[in-house]
């Protein structure tokens, strides 16, 4: 029972989320991968607060920031999906690759 256990769980969640964000073709599933990555950051931040610096609230503030980042990502992601779907009927990342050229 230690800091390392929680950090490994966080790293696992981050890796699973990264895999999803890289492989998924659907924009909504890609956002799920990003959320899982932030999920791992929450575990790591909570563990750091408890095991490294419980005297100050900085670790807790970091979790608040990550939770806010999740909410912002979700809202903006869905707004972008709505806009691009309405404009061009695109719901897959491969169909929205024009900027690559």
């Amino acid at each position: 029972m230690s800091l390392e256990l929680f950090l490994v769980i966080g790293a696992g969640l981050l890796a699973i989320g990264l895999f999803g964000a890289l492989t998924q073709q659907s924009v909504v599933m890609l956002m799920m991968g990003l959320e899982l990555m932030l999920n791992g950051v929450i575990v790591a931040a909570a563990a750091f607060w408890y095991y490294v610096a419980p005297g100050t609230a900085d670790g807790q503030v970091l979790i608040v920031v990550v939770i806010t980042a999740m909410a912002v990502e979700m809202a903006m992601g869905f707004a972008v999906v709505t806009a691009i779907f309405r404009a061009r009927d695109v719901d897959m990342t491969d169909m929205a690759a024009d900027l690559k050229e």
């Binding site: 790293a11 890796a15 895999f19 492989t23 095991y51 490294v52 610096a53 419980p54």
Partner: peptide, 29 residues
């Protein structure tokens, strides 16, 4: 993608166990 994600996980795990984490400062309120 599996190679990238697996590589990142392995690198993070190795780092987790190699880094000398600081001692606990303070007590939970």
């Amino acid at each position: 993608s599996a190679a990238i994600a697996g590589g990142i996980f392995i690198a993070l795990t190795v780092g987790i166990f190699l880094v000398d984490w600081p001692a606990r400062a303070g007590r939970p309120p």
